[in-house]
Design a protein around this nucleic acid. Sequence first.
DNA 1: TATTGTTATACTCTATAACTATA
DNA 2: TATAGTTATAGAGTATAACAATA
Lengths: 130, 130
Amino acid sequence: MATFRLARRLRCARAADTMSDAQLAVLADLRMNGRRTISTLAERERVAAPSMTNTINGLEEQGFVVRATDEDDRRRVQVAITEAGAEIVVETIRRRDELLADMLREVDYTEAELTTLREASALMRRVVER
Amino acid sequence: MATFRLARRLRCARAADTMSDAQLAVLADLRMNGRRTISTLAERERVAAPSMTNTINGLEEQGFVVRATDEDDRRRVQVAITEAGAEIVVETIRRRDELLADMLREVDYTEAELTTLREASALMRRVVER
DNA sequence: TATTGTTATACTCTATAACTATA
DNA sequence: TATAGTTATAGAGTATAACAATA
């Protein structure tokens, strides 16, 4: 329950309010992992291929990704993040970190409790990265 | 990032696949906090009033909540969870707990690490309950 | 013939605006 | 006149089905 509520609160903070959650998730993936095809992105985000086409169209219109036909297999479209796209991701993460920090400050945790949270954060990253 | 990914993974697990996330969130609120008016629910879920009317319609059709006019102020509609609704929430939480437990088992944490996670879970509940 | 991506179309969830009924 | 809720309508995001290009 805490996870769902925290996600909901943090989701409000983003760098560009023209960008949807779906777009942001793809951009974050591309930033970490380089270029990907439409199908791969669709599979990773667990959406149908036409939905991903739609998401990429939106990102492309805003200049956050570029499409390039794969020359080895001309059916494929390689999607790559632009510098502007990477900046948007960094800025969004910065704002969410800031919001979370504000939320944590309100509770007035002890230093020991903050240490527990930091450790747990690292542990949870290991879980979700599988 | 870990929060968003975990929420996404856990969201898949639910007791009734006819139930949306919005419906489930309302049901969980009603189960913990008793009956509420449409406006109060809308405010708590941070959606507009017509959206909440829509969400409650869906829950009512499935028999998970009942509407009752407030006799003190006949403009108000009090929404209460039914027994079937409460059961759905419990079952969904059970399935999500199970999924999370499976995910945690895959990582093979030490007992000390699991203790850190348990403590952090309690701490995060304090943050999001504000 | 199978696969990759796109287009066409429909459904759900959300919002704003306008309405009804109560206060 | 203000408030609680609903209805009407429109805009995202998603899905399935059908199609074009390529393998």
